[in-house]
């Protein structure tokens, strides 16, 4: 089959239904929304200037803080787990990694719902707290930043573990032995040999967690309250309730640019050479 034949379908599909829509919101982001929900195209930087309103800046700042904390927590929890599965899992290794895959493949919505039930007024979390005497009255656990964080870590942990597993699985254990033969302690061996060699997994996992959590709107929608609005909720609101498509487009363009910029910066910082094994 010729090259042109192979590439035509993808060019048409992604061109029409991915690239053009993106260019369209870029154009809309400089337009002006009119009262009937329509848009007048032009060059109006006003939508981007509105982003600097402290109200919106706070939401955007919160989005990136939550996504960054989520990435760090997932890395801190996911790395030891991936390490355990690869090096201590023995004959259970395949089963253990499949058990991480099940939540990975399960609808995020259902997993967020599980936490809605657990954290709500007389849910299990409150029952447990009352049982252990932490509190007498049910606490407001749901609709808080902590609830959003909990849902985020729960949802995205498997996204971190799988690439870490893939990276560690390739690791040649003879390198560890060599380091230890040369007198390095286990701790030293880990930080000087194992961890640096698993860097492609760390990068892939961090990107896989950071991007969707910064664009998240289901988890803050179900588990968060008015004080945990994230950029995703704001965009959804502009398109479906406020019907200010120009401002919504500007927010979307900004989110995409900031996220792609963050990835580039991150990859530069940790070094592109590390990406080679990916």
């Amino acid at each position: 089959m010729g090259l042109a034949g192979l590439l035509t379908p993808v060019t048409i599909w992604l061109g029409l239904f991915f690239l053009i829509p993106l260019l369209l919101i870029l154009a809309y982001s400089f337009g002006t929304s009119n009262v009937y929900g329509g848009i007048t195209l032009g060059f109006n930087p006003g939508n981007y200037l509105r982003v600097f309103d402290p109200l919106y800046l706070e939401i955007i700042g919160r989005t990136f803080v939550i996504a960054a904390i989520n990435t760090l927590i997932c890395l801190a929890l996911g790395y030891p787990l991936a390490y355990f599965i690869v090096f201590k899992g023995r004959r259970w290794r395949n089963v253990l990694i499949l058990l991480v895959m099940v939540p990975f493949w399960t609808s995020l919505l259902i997993r967020a719902y599980a936490w809605v039930v657990i954290l709500s007024g007389n849910g299990i979390a409150n029952k447990a707290l009352q049982f252990f005497g932490v509190t007498d009255e049910p606490l407001d656990l749901i609709f808080t930043t902590q609830a959003v964080m909990m849902g985020m870590v729960y949802s995205y942990l498997p996204f971190m573990v799988l690439p870490l597993y893939a990276a560690l699985e390739k690791f040649d254990t003879r390198l560890k032995e060599a380091a230890q033969d040369l007198g390095a302690s286990r701790w030293h061996t880990f930080w000087r040999v194992t961890f640096p060699l698993s860097m492609p997994g760390v990068i892939a996992g961090s990107i896989l967690v950071f991007i969707p959590s910064a664009g998240e709107f289901v988890i803050p929608d179900l588990l968060g309250g008015s004080r945990t609005v994230m950029t995703g909720n704001l965009i959804q609101n502009q398109f479906l309730q406020a019907r200010d498509w120009a401002f919504g487009s500007a927010l979307s363009v900004m989110l995409a640019v900031l996220l792609l910029g963050a990835i580039m910066f991150y990859i530069r910082r940790v070094g592109t050479d590390k990406l080679e094994g990916m």
Partner: peptide, 18 residues
């Protein structure tokens, strides 16, 4: 690769607009 890292919400609203 860009199509895999683009936040879903941006893909969603851009298709709606389109």
């Amino acid at each position: 690769y860009a199509a895999t890292v683009m936040p879903e919400i941006v893909v969603g609203v851009s298709l709606l607009v389109f």
